[in-house]
């Protein structure tokens, strides 16, 4: 008998009597909480920068500013003039040279500062992780209260890869001293479109 069948047979034989699944629809509705305020507070508490902008049209100016300071910027935001064609074809060694990266977030979560970014948003899966400075842009309309709301809104398998990103990469593996900037981005800026 192959291992697959052996494992499945053992489970069938050994599992407990059926227990029904609890209802997990519409959990913990959160009244009138100001999600933008909460989201911003949480982000700031996890070493991230929040910038409020009026619209997509403000992003190109941010990018130009960074470029003028000598930074290598890659922009994957479809709503504005972008570098998606270039990004898609870059090798990992080329992407590694990126200083700033701009990516649109689909949904953001107030309770934990997480932003849902898909492969489609990023153009290249490696992009949000390999850059030095990550900039995510989220429309304030798309900020929800908690993770339950977030999973109600996103279609999780719409693309092959999706990730909740909450803050810059970090570690505390040396004596529990928090160090911001581990293997992923060294810092995170979230632009909230009002």
């Amino acid at each position: 008998m192959n291992s697959r069948q052996k494992i499945l047979d053992n489970i069938e034989k050994n599992k407990p009597a059926f227990v029904s699944l609890p209802d997990t629809k519409n959990l913990f509705a959160t009244g009138n909480e100001n999600v933008v305020k909460k989201f911003s507070e949480v982000l700031e508490s996890i070493s991230s920068t929040v910038k409020k902008v009026n619209g997509w049209q403000d992003i190109p100016d941010e990018i130009s500013g960074l470029k003028n300071n000598g930074n290598y910027v890659l922009n994957a935001v479809e709503e504005i003039n972008n570098d998606r064609e270039i990004i898609i074809n870059k090798t990992k060694d080329e992407l590694e040279k990126s200083d700033y990266v701009f990516i649109k977030g689909e949904i953001a979560v107030a309770e934990n500062g997480a932003v849902w970014v898909t492969e489609k948003n990023a153009a290249n899966r490696l992009l949000p992780f390999i850059c030095r400075h990550l900039c995510l842009i989220i429309d304030s309309k798309n900020i929800v209260h908690n993770m339950h709301d977030a999973y109600e809104k996103i279609k999780i398998d719409e693309t092959g890869f999706g990730v909740f990103i909450s803050g810059p990469s970090k570690t505390a593996d040396i004596e529990q001293s928090l160090v911001i900037g581990a293997h992923g981005a060294l810092d995170l800026t979230v632009y909230i479109i009002q």
Partner: peptide
């Protein structure tokens, strides 16, 4: 685990690129 509201990355892998 650590008292964080969520880990920095919660990655969902469905398909290979």
């Amino acid at each position: 685990a650590t008292g964080q509201p969520i880990t920095t990355y919660s990655s969902h892998y469905h398909r290979a690129r």
